[in-house]
Amino acid sequence: MRELSLIGIGTGNPDHLTAEAARAINAADLILLPRKGADKVDLADLRREILARVLVNPAAQVVEFDLPQRDAAHPDYRAGVEGWHDAIALAWARTADVPGADHVALLVWGDPSLYDSSLRIAARLPGPPRVRVIPGITAVQALAAAHAMPLNAIGAPFMVTTGRRLRDDGFPPGCDTCVVMLDGTCSFRSLPPAGLSIWWGAYLGMEAQILDHGPLAEAGPRILNARAAARARHGWIMDIYLLRRA
């Protein structure tokens, strides 16, 4: 592998794919398609649909592989993530060990720059290869578009954080708006709801998209119920939300 293209594909709508991303897909010798288990087959199917739409290079190979799973019970979160990234890099290298596969591509959910570890994993590859990034629509952008709202107040900052940090550290100081990603436990429940509003979305960009918003005290319980029902129905969920102080 001499070159690796990390191609942002957006949050679930094949129409999110840019013309630049389509060109990068067709320039690759080999396209790696990760499988994340039976409960997340929708994610692999979306990548297959994108390739069916735009891949016209007959010389390009598509190889699927099973993505290693992170040990969520590891006592040291950082060490557990580092070991997981090592395992993924090894899976990439082994799967890409195909004669003539000098230029390899990976379709990355959202964008490689935001709460995605593809760039850190790529740095662990032998060589390492030259890395090219093709940007994609992030879940943050998709959430704001779905609710037809600006992310920031006039001249004001906002913060993007994780559910774990919100739960451990509370609402971020120094701003009135925060976007929360990677929250599997609905950490907004740990906040005093007075004066807070929430804008939530799940499966953004997909046919299964769900939205809700309102004062946290009122919308929070609705979101908990909708999230649990959706996860039971689909077997997985990807969601994000914005919190704003009055």
Rank of each mutant, 00 (worst) to 15 (best):
G220E: 04
V63W: 04
R130M: 09
Q61S: 12
E207K: 12
M181Y: 05
R227M: 08
W84T: 06
L46H: 03
G10R: 04
A156Q: 15
P58L: 09
H234S: 12
A93D: 11
P135Y: 01
L216V: 07
M149W: 02
T11S: 12
G83V: 11
R70G: 01
G235P: 08
R227I: 01
C175T: 15
F171H: 09
H85R: 15
S118R: 08
V108Q: 01
F171P: 11
R2W: 03
G205L: 05
F158E: 07
R244Y: 12
D168K: 10
A101I: 07
R231Q: 15
L166V: 02
G235C: 10
G235M: 11
P173L: 06
A232L: 12
D76G: 08
E82I: 13
A226Y: 01
E64D: 10
N26G: 14
T11F: 01
D66W: 00
P99C: 08
V179E: 10
A19M: 13
M1W: 07
V81Y: 01
E64C: 04
V140A: 11
L107E: 03
E64Y: 01
T161M: 12
G12A: 05
A219Q: 00
V56H: 14
N57D: 13
D71G: 00
L143E: 03
A123Y: 01
V140C: 09
V131M: 06
A153N: 04
I137F: 00
D176V: 06
G136D: 02
L119N: 03
A22M: 12
P150F: 10
A202N: 07
A101G: 09
L46A: 02
N152R: 11
D97K: 06
M159I: 13
H234Q: 15
L90C: 04
A89W: 09
L51N: 02
N152E: 14
A230H: 08
T18P: 10
A156M: 13
A232S: 13
S117K: 07
Y203E: 13
D168T: 11
S117P: 04
D66I: 12
K40E: 14
P157E: 12
D76E: 13
H103D: 08
S187K: 06
D29F: 09
A28R: 07
I223E: 05
L216Y: 09
P34I: 03
I88D: 06
G170Y: 12
S190D: 15
R70A: 14
R245V: 06
A22H: 07
V54E: 11
M181Q: 05
A226S: 15
A91N: 09
P129Y: 05
T95V: 08
A232M: 09
I50W: 03
A230K: 02
V81D: 08
